[in-house]
């Protein structure tokens, strides 16, 4: 870990300004991923702007009938919020399926969106990785790739977004609210927040330099039955091989998004129309054009069967 200076600003725009004016500065909130990566010098900020004192930790109703979740609401609190449990159960479930109790107590809403991949080559600084060191190559393509992306990847990168929360937020059509150093704010739809690696895998999201996430807004509740089904090798405290977030209505229609399969939460709206026809119809369409490695081809079948399990659970 390189040395860094540290400050605690007192407002979101001041925080954004601090990051904008200081070379190689980063925000730190929960720190559970950033510090992990700093210890390995995968992240090497020279200045940390601690946003934990900024408030931004409340969950408020929106005029549209949804919820506005502060960027610093901890995963534990978001999952436990009575309104989220009642109206956005898929989000509660996704959060509770992630990490451990200790990590959820620290991890924040914004930070969770920004967590970086768990690809083993990203984590090993002696190995080539385009995401960590642009232009160095991708060791995963012909390396250990059992956990990695089957769709939306590129010749440069087959990393996955490792999170659960973002999959549920993508399903719910949440919006990410940000502020920049000039104090201007914008809303980024979740569909556009995470990007595909293409030839710039070092860039995970569409956030601009110095832009600070202040909140995530959830549209008004969808009703229906909410399911988050996460499949992993051990029963808890593990990243998804495949996960499915689904909201299903009594008439069999609904939405479905997939985790553990791509550089971003994977949702193909055009495939959701096939939900009444069953899981296979949806995954055939949603995963058309998938390019798995021989180590992770199983994820295609697993996505289908996990969606099947989710539909089954919703009907039960």
């Amino acid at each position: 870990m390189k040395s860094f200076t540290y400050e605690r600003p007192s407002s979101p725009s001041e925080a954004a300004a601090a990051v904008a004016r200081t070379p190689n500065a980063k925000f730190i909130a929960g720190g559970t991923n950033l510090l992990d990566l700093m210890k390995l010098q995968i992240e090497t900020p020279a200045h940390l702007v601690d946003v934990n004192g900024l408030g931004l930790d409340t969950i408020e109703p929106t005029p549209e009938g949804g919820l506005r979740v502060g960027a610093l609401v901890r995963n534990t609190d978001l999952a436990a919020d009575a309104r989220v449990r009642k109206d956005y159960a898929v989000l509660s479930r996704a959060l509770l399926a992630g990490a451990s109790g200790q990590l959820r107590n620290k991890a924040t809403t914004a930070g969770n969106l920004l967590q970086r991949t768990r690809c083993p080559y990203f984590y090993d600084t002696a190995q080539a990785c385009n995401k960590r060191q642009p232009g160095s190559g991708c060791s995963a393509l012909d390396g250990v790739s059992r956990q990695l992306a089957v769709i939306g990847g590129s010749e440069a990168c087959i990393a996955t977004h490792p999170g659960d929360m973002a999959v549920a937020m993508r399903l719910l059509d949440a919006n990410v609210e940000t502020v920049d150093a000039k104090g201007s704010s914008r809303k980024i739809p979740m569909a556009e927040f995470h990007r595909l690696p293409g030839d710039r895998p070092e860039i995970d999201t569409t956030l601009k330099a110095g832009e600070l996430i202040t909140a995530v807004t959830l549209p008004k509740p969808l009703g229906g039955t909410h399911v988050y089904r996460k499949v992993r090798d051990r029963a808890s405290y593990a990243y998804a091989l495949v996960s499915v977030a689904a909201v299903l209505q009594p008439d069999g229609t609904g939405r479905a998004a997939f985790g553990g399969v791509s550089h971003k939460p994977w949702r193909v709206e055009a495939a959701e129309g096939d939900l009444p026809r069953g899981a296979k119809a949806v995954t055939d369409k949603a995963f058309a054009g998938a390019k798995p490695t021989h180590q992770n081809a199983y994820k295609l079948k697993l996505a289908e069967r996990t969606l099947m399990a989710a539909i089954h659970e919703a009907r039960a």
Partner: peptide, 28 residues
């Protein structure tokens, strides 16, 4: 679940931490 994942090209165990090398947890 336990398997040191061999990168047979580069010659090492790729999942070399406790997130990558899964051992049983309470829930198992």
């Amino acid at each position: 679940m336990e398997e040191l994942a061999v990168d047979t090209k580069r010659g090492f165990f790729a999942n070399h931490d406790l997130a990558g090398y899964e051992v049983p947890v309470h829930a198992d």
